[in-house]
């Protein structure tokens, strides 16, 4: 039983990180119809800047620098590239972000060399003991931070003018324009929020017990894609549910050593879950279904 609870906590912690990244995918998709394949390298970028800044300052300011750098990069991508590709279709925009991803990751790989960086988070390898359970502090911190950020996000989404615009804009661009909502500001904010989420998520992706930060974090970020798709690419709530589901599934398969052909299924479980869900519901669990059927 202890083991089960341990795994559940583990899964929730991992899932909340996935949820943050998946939410980044969804916000950007809702605002600009872009499936952002560059999210993975933005994550690595955030981690890299935070680590480098940490050489000169304490962790929290360093993280703020990392967040700022990632958000600004996202903003530049949106302003300079995405905006100029207006009129390109969804596929072309996705391909555009793949191009951006290649550029970012090439430069980051050059900077990383073969290093594995430690991001310098304050939790280190410390554990928390709760009865029989002992959990890495970083895991609890991940859950706490995710809850705070998600609450903040959904509050903003519901009450702020940006959130109202996001929701209206996603439903009807023309109506939003009539309401005097400035699309430009809405989409720019969406990209910056996605950057912020990526920069925070990377801290927990690379914190103990993970070995540290290298460019491989980009592929871990891709595992949040199934989370976003599973919930439905245009559903913010779905991203959170999807993230948690993927995190739990992964923690359970890893914890109970579920194997297939002798390999641990935990490596591919997010993708298997995604395929199964898509078989049943081609637009995810909470995604908007197409009116037309052809």
């Amino acid at each position: 039983m202890t083991r089960f609870i341990d795994l559940v906590l583990n899964g929730i912690s991992l899932g909340s990180v996935y949820a943050l990244i998946a939410l980044g995918f969804v916000i950007v998709f809702k605002a600009t119809e872009v499936v952002n394949f560059a999210q993975g390298s933005m994550l690595v970028l955030g981690g890299y800047v935070t680590t480098r800044a940490h050489d000169h300052m304490p962790f929290v300011p360093a993280l703020l620098v990392g967040i700022a750098a990632t958000a600004i990069t996202a903003l530049i991508i949106e302003r300079v590239l995405i905006r100029n590709a207006r009129g390109a279709d969804v596929n072309a925009l996705a391909i555009l972000t793949i191009g951006i991803d290649i550029l970012l990751i090439t430069e980051l790989t050059r900077r990383f060399g073969s290093d594995v960086l430690t991001i310098g988070d304050p939790w280190g390898n410390k554990l928390v003991h709760l009865g029989n359970l002992s959990l890495p502090q970083a895991r609890l911190a991940a859950i706490t931070v995710a809850v705070v950020l998600l609450t903040g996000f959904f509050a903003a989404f519901k009450y702020s003018s940006w959130g109202v615009a996001m929701r209206a804009g996603a439903e009807d661009n023309e109506a939003a324009a009539l309401m005097g909502i400035r699309r430009g500001r809405v989409t720019a904010t969406a990209w910056m929020v996605a950057g912020l989420l990526a920069a925070v998520a990377v801290v927990f992706l690379t914190a103990f017990p993970s070995p540290g930060l290298d460019t491989g974090a980009r592929e871990i970020a891709l595992r949040a894609f199934p989370a976003a798709i599973l919930g439905g690419l245009d559903s913010t709530g779905g991203a959170v549910v999807g993230g948690l589901a993927i995190g739990l599934a992964e923690a359970m398969t890893a914890g109970y050593s579920v194997t297939f052909l002798g390999g641990s299924l935990a490596d591919v479980i997010p993708y298997l879950v995604m395929l199964v869900i898509l078989l049943v519901r081609p637009s995810g669990i909470f995604g908007t279904r197409e009116l037309s059927r052809v």
Binding site: V90, L233, L261, G263, M274, L278, S283
Partner: peptide, 22 residues
């Protein structure tokens, strides 16, 4: 539709890697 397929097809690459190694 196009873009959903793009993401779904990603999974084949990773599931593939799992199979090649195991």
């Amino acid at each position: 539709r196009g873009i959903y397929l793009g993401v779904a097809s990603l999974s084949l690459v990773f599931i593939g890697s799992f199979i090649y190694e195991n």
